[in-house]
Amino acid sequence: MTLRHHLDEATVISFAAGALSPEMSAVAATHVGVCRVCRERLSDAERIGGALLGQQQPTLADEARSARLREAMLKLLDSGPAMEDPPAIGRGPHVLAPTDPDHLPRPLQPYFGRSWRELRWRWVAPGMHMIRAARGSGDTLILLKIAPGKSMPLHSHQGTELTQILQGAYDDALGHFGPGDVADLGDEIEHQPITARGVSCVCVAALDAPLRFPGWLARKLQPMVGL
């Protein structure tokens, strides 16, 4: 898949460092699962982590602790299973067997379940359905389904929004976003996506602050959306 819109490098660093919220991580992992460019960047960011790990300087207090732990490790070597069998070739986090088309991307399954068919969409506005993930760390994770050829309300954000297109497409001031593309938006952006004709646009979005819709629509929509 040739994708046009990728994760911000700053987001890739935070993802590699384990510094994204679970909700942001779920969206980033969904993108990385289909994007070779970001997979390579992630791997680079992990190497940076490795280099930094090597540069850590243990203190004397740590060394004192080390003797006891070393003894414990020696016992583990004696008692544990000698060696694990190499796993099957090609197994890896991103090399997933061809999945059932009814399955959601793996990183989203803990939040929304496994099956597209079993999703319980909630109507929030004409042509717009939503599911909000129940479990959460403070950030918000939502699935959005917007009817084809629909104009979303103009809105801006207070924080960061990470949106991955799962199906369909939309256009906004930043360009055309199709399946697999990710919109990694900061707080300076105000946008008004318009969905493409033909199929509904389904996307997953993580937000670290409430959305702000301007004007009459905001007052109408915000209580219903609950964002």
């Binding site: 991580s25 992992a29 197994r91 986090p93 991103h94 803990p110």
Partner: peptide
């Protein structure tokens, strides 16, 4: 965190994807 990356499958010596 649920399913951040599959702990069972990762990391392994052959680099994560093998493809790149």
């Amino acid at each position: 965190e649920p399913c951040w990356m599959e702990l069972e499958n990762e990391p392994e010596w052959p680099d994560i994807d093998g493809g790149f």
